[in-house]
Write a protein that binds this DNA or RNA. Sequence first.
DNA 1: GTGAAAGCGCTAACAA
DNA 2: TTGTTAGCGCTTTCAC
Lengths: 327, 327
Amino acid sequence: MAVGIKDVARAAGVSPATVSRVLGNGPVSTSLRERVETAIRLTGYRPNLSARRLRSQHSRTIGLIVSDLGNPFFTALSRAVEDAAYRAEMRVVLCNTDENPAREAMYLRLMQEERVTGVIYAPTRRMAASLGQMDFDFPVVLVDRTGPVGRHDGVLLDNRDAAGRLADHLAARGFRRIAGLFGNTSSTAEDRHAGFVAALAGHGLTARASFVAPAVAAAEEAAAALLAGPDRPDAIVGSNGLILLGIVKALKAAGFAMPTDVAVAGFDNEVWTDLVGDGVTVIEQPVADIGRAAMSLLFERLQNPDGAARTVMLAGRLIERGSTRRA
Amino acid sequence: MAVGIKDVARAAGVSPATVSRVLGNGPVSTSLRERVETAIRLTGYRPNLSARRLRSQHSRTIGLIVSDLGNPFFTALSRAVEDAAYRAEMRVVLCNTDENPAREAMYLRLMQEERVTGVIYAPTRRMAASLGQMDFDFPVVLVDRTGPVGRHDGVLLDNRDAAGRLADHLAARGFRRIAGLFGNTSSTAEDRHAGFVAALAGHGLTARASFVAPAVAAAEEAAAALLAGPDRPDAIVGSNGLILLGIVKALKAAGFAMPTDVAVAGFDNEVWTDLVGDGVTVIEQPVADIGRAAMSLLFERLQNPDGAARTVMLAGRLIERGSTRRA
DNA sequence: GTGAAAGCGCTAACAA
DNA sequence: TTGTTAGCGCTTTCAC
């Protein structure tokens, strides 16, 4: 059957404690360490992580709870987090909630049962509301989205600013009948909406904004309705990469060309955005920086559990492409 | 401090064993069960998974080791696997190796230490070669790629057939100077290469095939070289979605139009493929089916550990689009 | 149906 | 530096 620490100890002629010290880089003489290491190799011993964690009371595991792995933003984020964790010799449990609060709750419970060291978490708006009443035995760092004020650390894009710059850009290019599709599950989409509407108002323009499920199909449908309806917009904005894609698909299906018939712009510099037509104007997010910042906040919080909650805000970058060129 | 099973037992006036039975849906009278459940709620008790796993000797965890989460094929696969696991009340630990054998080895070791119930795994070609000498205490199901013959269950696209159909399609459309870029890390790319070359030979054509890193930048560079070199191909094929994207980007950068100057086709029906120009001809993989089949194989193997290794092969679907239309 | 007792595999505390 | 001992929090006998 499975070989345990005692078998290794016997094989090396030492006590289990010494084997344990070798495993944990504890103080062991070189000669014993070598004997133990050979014994480990010979027996094919693999330490049992459950036992280690139970005894040592720390899991060296961080939970990453994202809302949609089908969204390249979150896959990029995951990589950055995993990378940082790897360097810190920690494991990452990756949880995908599909913007479903029930799954979020399930995963939060799981994280508690796993006794994780910390969690990095992009909550839905609905779950963020309940987050205020919940207590966790580990620090939680929110990414991409906000939660109850002052309760958790967080890393965010400056969404209002970025959306405002998008609005300014469209207004400056002479577009006037501007519509926007925003996700209906995140604080982030709300913030982008607010920044967008406010900036347009500053130019004396009224935004035609609506909230949709942050998914390609839903956005495509909503965009098709906009295009078929009366008073067709001359520009449409999407609040994330999936929504933006839906808009572009709807345009294509309806046979509209991109800057000429309707201008398009949005968030997330996804690979396809510079491939379609003359490219789609987007706000690029510093995704890797967001992931790294979240990990830093988490580690700092572990050092200093009682400091005040901090929110790091990063700036987006406007990439102007053909889809908003003015005729 | 953290509340344990004993605290709950005390609060409910029962023994720890009874609380444990409630947790595990064991035989408990309704009245006691209710008392225990209230006590759990009142105390905010969360069972310690490490302790449960240690004692019960099963982790209810499956490991999913994929080679590139930046590849939509693998994110789609992950969803299918996670979905099936969720229904089976199992957890998934998602591991991304970035086609790096060192990371694969690290994760395989981790899976052993976690005492996972089973693993679903897309190995690099290099790691697949060493897989024959490795022994695991859990079943391994290979996905998308093959390993040592007869050693593990597996789920695969019928790659030779699919690549052959792509070749036939191009030949039938009258293309003659056909080049192909294939990934250099997977058995799958090899198989596609073989099927492609063989099918073209059947039409009396010689394929100009080369192997590149399965990533956008590498493919873009290789494609640019093909386009700039002598005897420019009239069609280029990419062996997966990332490579295909690189090819399309190179064409765009060089100012070539898609069916007219050079035809393009490849694997994976990614979202952008029907958006660029008149669409890119692709082989679509039944990704969700692949994931489900892998989970089925895994569960069946757990039931019947000694049966012969099985390989499930699924057919791809050719989607003809504008990028291979003949002038 | 319920409780008492043993022990999963390891590491931490203490002693030597 | 090394070994001995105890016990992390739970589930699983085994009695009743």
